[in-house]
């Protein structure tokens, strides 16, 4: 794997440390449609790296490939320099790579607390334990409550998750992802469908999380992106057309061209 690691280093910018996550020449096609077209990116430890792009650009599909929900046709994915390409999603999570979903994916019949405690349980292992009421296990509930407190959902912890408001569900998604104790967090439009107040809450939360994890953020809300991101990459028709600091990307002519008329930057 040394060749790969070298390749990953080469993709990374000036920093000498191994990137937290690196994509090396990733490709994927659905029939004739190239949804991921020679994508190479490196994400530094602790940075918040936003990926933006118009609808259908292939952002979600990219997250699917990184998380293992979909497999890339070609290319490599390195987590802390280690190849995770081809591993199933669950194995990647156990290696410290968590994700949230653009379309809320929670367990509606479980309470918010159980949703998060489930993720804690996955991390702690010994899920073949057939006895002992899991609902009363403080070893699972205490960390879950702490995380719910961080995302501001503690007051609603005992409600079935299916009954939470949309914004609360988005927060719960984040809490579940955090509970797996990831090093890298892939967030697919955490603000999708949230109202102004809810989205302000989520943005505040993201600001809190920034620096704690390496975050790959996909988002259409440009104010949020430019307020939060350390770096921004622009994905159009499956290709990365620009990557850099928010300011550099904002003034990049290729980006302006791709975006003008579609969305105001």
């Amino acid at each position: 794997m040394t060749g790969l690691e070298a390749a990953a280093k080469a993709e990374a910018p000036a920093t000498s440390a191994t990137p937290a996550l690196a994509l090396v020449d990733l490709n994927k096609a659905y029939g004739a449609l190239k949804v991921t077209d020679h994508v190479s990116l490196a994400f530094d430890v602790g940075e918040l790296h936003a990926i933006i792009g118009p609808n259908g650009a292939g952002k979600t599909t990219l997250i699917h490939q990184i998380s293992g929900l979909a497999q890339a046709d070609a290319g490599h994915i390195l987590l802390d320099g280690q190849a995770i390409t081809g591993l199933p999603m669950a194995a990647r999570v156990r290696k410290g790579l968590a994700r949230s979903f653009q379309i809320t994916s929670i367990i509606p019949g479980f309470s918010g607390l159980e949703n998060v405690a489930l993720a804690v349980q996955a991390r702690l292992g010994s899920s073949f334990r057939l006895f002992g009421a899991v609902a009363r296990e403080e070893r699972l509930n205490a960390p879950a409550r702490a995380i719910l407190e961080t995302v501001g959902l503690l007051g609603r912890a005992d409600l079935p998750a299916g009954l939470l408001s949309h914004g609360e569900k988005r927060q719960l998604e984040l809490a579940i992802a955090m509970a797996t104790e990831p090093r890298v967090l892939l967030l697919d439009e955490p603000l999708a469908g949230t109202g102004p107040e809810e989205s302000a809450a989520v943005i505040a939360l993201l600001r809190k999380l920034k620096g704690r994890y390496t975050i790959v953020l996909i988002e259409h809300d440009m104010d949020a992106v430019f307020a939060l991101a350390d770096r921004v990459s622009v994905l159009v028709y499956g290709r990365i057309i620009a990557s850099g600091t928010p300011d550099a990307v904002r003034h990049d002519p290729a980006v302006r061209e791709a975006y003008l008329g579609e969305e105001g930057l």
Partner: peptide, 21 residues
């Protein structure tokens, strides 16, 4: 039990189960 929670979770949303590991 812990085990039962995994079974119940997988019933409702298997993808979510994989996404937590």
């Amino acid at each position: 039990s812990r085990f039962g929670r995994v079974i119940r979770g997988a019933k409702e949303n298997p993808v979510r189960m994989e996404a937590v590991g």
